[in-house]
């Protein structure tokens, strides 16, 4: 999986490419763990992401908690399969999905 980050003011955009699974989730966790502050908005650009497991979902939930839990996480370019994973868990109610 490829991860790239871009910060503009208090908005962090994280672009993900490949598969976010048990093997790659720790990479993402390490890459963004110190970057998110309370009050930030985080955009995950998932246009290039083809697969995500609950391990990846956990990182998204952790990011949402790190921002202060105010619904400041946006998922962009979510493919059908990943949208299904998010909808099955009901986490679509805590993320903004574009």
């Amino acid at each position: 999986m490829e991860i790239s980050k871009n910060r503009e003011g208090n908005q962090l955009t994280v672009t993900l490419t490949g598969e976010l699974n048990t093997a790659t989730a720790p990479e993402l966790e390490a890459a963004i763990k110190d970057d998110i502050q309370v009050g930030d908005t985080v955009v995950f650009d998932m246009t290039g992401l083809t697969y995500m497991t609950s391990a990846g979902l956990r990182i998204l939930v952790a990011s949402e908690q790190a921002t202060g839990g105010s619904g400041a996480v946006t998922l962009r370019g979510v493919c059908k399969e990943i949208r299904q994973v998010i909808e099955v868990t009901g986490f679509d109610s805590i993320f903004n999905i574009e």
Partner: peptide, 11 residues
């Protein structure tokens, strides 16, 4: 049918 989000979150 769904009931809510997974357990363990502070929501």
């Amino acid at each position: 049918e769904k009931s809510g989000i997974p357990l363990g979150t502070p929501i």
